[in-house]
Design a protein around this nucleic acid. Structure first.
Ligand SMILES: [Zn+2]
Ligand SMILES: [Zn+2]
Ligand SMILES: [Zn+2]
Ligand SMILES: [Zn+2]
Lengths: 136, 136
DNA sequence: GATTGACTCTATAGTTGTTATAGAGTTTAT
DNA sequence: ATAAACTCTATAACAACTATAGAGTCAATC
């Protein structure tokens, strides 16, 4: 049985984050010591690593909660998991597209300044003042 | 002179957002009518569109405030504007890279489920339980 | 002139996933 | 006994909005 500081070191999640996950029901409520300190075992470490792995994939806390729910009802079909993953992948790809477009616009804007001028004549500021290309 | 609702329609910014921008000093404090309603002229419309354009490029409110400051001191050199733009572009590109990596991992994970199975045997959940590839 | 409806005002809370405090209690070591 | 290191809860901060409550303003209708 380890305390929260050690769990933090082992998993790489901050102490506050661990407490937050507990409050949000992403990990089980920890047992407590006599002095009311949280105590964790190996299972708790695994649970937290699962959550951390999901977070590294940018799954939201509600999404993770849903995954945990599904994994606790083993009779359930995979469809639900898959639907969520597909939706999530879609969102990530949409965001990539958005940012790529953004990046092009930013680079174009950046090119409109040839340095060493004063801000008064700056193409960047002038272009920013003009109406946006399209507000997507 | 138009009221805030009309400004909202003209610019496509919500009423609350306009009030928020005023509080955050991204647009000038509006004149007030007898009944304490905000009143805007053409200049105000332009100012708000500038801010909106910047936001559509994902510039943060502090960054926009900085741009506004620079554009108000016309003697200033372009260097500052450029430095900010470069930093911003860097961040956008870094985020694109991150998301691209993420997307690959998500797709790989998604492939590990062949549907119609029960969650118990699901490759997705199994792989999520395993230690992450790398926590970047 | 009273009432309705559409609009506006301020102030405050909620969103998301943490991070950072404050102030108090616990444990371990000296 | 005391100090250091840790833990506890509760609360605020971050970013950029969005949403709400409760009150006030204004124009038009009856
Ligand atoms: Zn998602
Ligand atoms: Zn320039
Ligand atoms: Zn930026
Ligand atoms: Zn599956």
């Amino acid at each position: 049985m380890i305390k929260i500081g050690e769990l933090s070191k082992v998993t790489g999640c901050s102490v506050q984050t661990i407490r937050h996950y507990e409050k949000e029901q992403l990990i089980a409520s920890a047992e407590r010591s006599e002095g009311n300190f949280r105590l964790y075992d190996e299972v708790a470490v695994e649970q937290l690593l699962f959550v951390k792995h999901c977070r590294s994939l940018d799954l939201s806390l509600p999404e993770i909660r849903q995954l945990l729910g599904l994994s606790r009802s083993p009779g359930a079909q995979c469809d639900d998991v898959n639907r969520m993953m597909d939706r999530h992948i879609e969102q990530v790809e949409a965001r990539i597209q958005e940012l790529t477009k953004l990046n092009e616009q930013l680079r174009m804007l950046r090119r409109s300044c040839s340095n060493r001028r004063t801000v008064e004549q700056c193409g960047i500021l002038r272009n920013l003042s003009a109406t946006p290309v399209s507000s997507g």
